[in-house]
Design a protein around this nucleic acid. Sequence first.
RNA 1: GUCCCUAUCGUCUAGACGGCCCAGGACAACGGCCUUUCACGCCGUCAACGCCGGUUCGAAUCCGGCUGGGGACGCCA
Length: 482
Amino acid sequence: MRGTLPLAFAGLLPLTRNTERDMKKVITRFAPSPTGHLHIGGGRTAIFCWLLARHFGGEFRLRIEDTDSERSRQEYTDSILASMKWLGLDWDGELTYQSRRLDVYNSYVDKLLASGHAYWCDCSPEEVEAMREVARAKGEKPRYNGRCRERGLGPGEGRVVRLRVPDEGRIVFDDMVKGHIAVDVAELDDMVLRRADGMPTYNMAVVVDDHDMGVTHVLRGDDHVSNTPKQILLYQALGFDLPTFGHVPMILGPDRQKLSKRHGARAVIEYEQDGLLPQALVNYLVRLGWSHGDQEIFSMDELVHLFDGTSLNSAAAAFDPEKLQWLNAHYLRETPPARIAEMVEPFMEKKGVSLDRGMLEKLVPLYRERSANLVELAEDMALYQPGADVECEEKAAKSLTDEGKGHIAALRGIFAGLAEFDEASLEAAIHEYVEKGGLKFKQVGPPLRAALIGRAGGPSVHLTLCALGREESLRRLDRVLA
RNA sequence: GUCCCUAUCGUCUAGACGGCCCAGGACAACGGCCUUUCACGCCGUCAACGCCGGUUCGAAUCCGGCUGGGGACGCCA
C-alpha cells in the first residue's frame, strides 16, 4: 500500500466566460475559527468568497471552525457574525459548527484506517518533537519520522491517527491566484488526523467539511498554501473530487511587516467603532489585492458584477489607513444626510451629545464633507449641543478682539430683532451690516463663528446661526460679550 | 535550517500578443485655483519597472541567477 497512492493533480478550472456555463453551481465558504474577532484579512477573504458566489449565482456558506475547544469562544462567534452582517455579507443555509460534527470526522478517519491510508501512532508529543530536532539537525524539514507506520497499532489511550503519506511523488495543483504550484511529498510528514482526545485536526475537518458541503472553490488566505498539498492527499485518500483552490495574499502593515497590534485597528469591529462606513471598508479591502483597470470606487452591485475571481494580485499588499479614510470621506459625501444622521447618533450618544433630529439633519449636510468618519462628525455635532459652553480653540479666540466683540454686540441686536430667523434673512442681515459699515466680511465672520462654535473653520456663519436657532445663538453670543 | 510563494512611484495598482510605456490611474506629499473661513471640488508638480546576465531589430513585459519581501514547517486554525 505504501507509496502507491495516486499522485494528486487538481485540474485548472479557469473562471473564464466560456467555461462558466459548463461549471457546476459555484459554492464557496468562509471558515473562521472563533478565537478572536474578525480581522481585516479574514474580512477580505470573506468578501472575496461572497463576491465569487454571488457573481456566479452560487452559494456562500459559513462554517465555524471550533475544534480547538481551548481557545474557541462563543462571544467570538457572535462577534464574527456581527461583523459579517455589518459588512453586508449574508450566507446561505445553516451555520455549520465543526464541534457538532465530531462523529462525521471520526467515521471518515475509520474509513482511512480501514483502507490503510492511515494508522494509529502512540508516539508522545515529546518523542515527535525529538524527531523533528533530529531532522532539523540534518538540515531537513522538521517532521515525524514514521515510526509507527508499520507497527499495526490499534486504538488506545493517548494514541493519534496519522495519514500515511506516499513515499515519493509530487503534488501539483493550479491555484486560482498563484497559478501552478508543485510540492514534493518528501516535504510532507504523516500528519495527525485525529488527536489523542478524539478531536479531528484542522486539515481533516476542513477536507471532510468542504466535501460534505459541496464546496467547489476554496478561496482562503495565503498562509494556507502549504496546507493544500496535505489536504489534496486527503482528498485523494478519501476518494473525493478536488475543489479549485485559490490563495489570496496576506495584508501587511503600513511598514510592510505582518499586521499586528502595533498597527492599530485590525479587527473589522474596530473600524466600525472608528466611525467607518461598511461600504468604505469593503471597497478598500477589495481593491487591496484586486483591481479593475483604473477604477477606485465600486458599489456592491458593481463588485458582484465584476468580480469573477480573476485579476487577483498574488503578492502581499500593505495596508494604507490614509486611503481608507479617503474612501470613507468619499462615501460619507455620497450617503443621504438622513441616513448619516441615523448612523452618527450612536457616536454622539457615546459623547453624551444629543441633538433633536431636525437640527441634526440640518447640520449633517454642512459637516459631512468636512469629516472623514462618523467619530469626527460626532465631534463636530458636539459643538451644537444646546446649552453647551464650547471651549474656544486658540486659533479662533484670536478673532475675539474688542473690535470683533463690538461687531458681535451690534449683530446680536440685529439678530434678536429679525422677523424670521432663517438662512435668507440671516445672510441678508449680515450682508447689510457689512455693507453699511463699510466693513470687510473678514472682520465680522471669524469673531461671530468663534463666539458661536469656538472654531476658526466651519460652514458659513449664517448657516451655523440658522442651525443653532435664535435662542441658542443669542445665548452663545451673550456668553462671549459677558 | 528546509520548502512554497512573491518583486512597477512612499502606498494600492494599470500594463493580454515583447514595440502604442522616456510607464497610466488613485492615496499621500507639494504648489495653485475656487471660497468671507475650514473643508469639498478642480488644475498641476514630485515620484517606480530591485540587481546581473541571456533571448530579440526591440523587454517592465520571455528565460536564468542573485538579492529583497511574505508564508509554512503543531495532537493551532
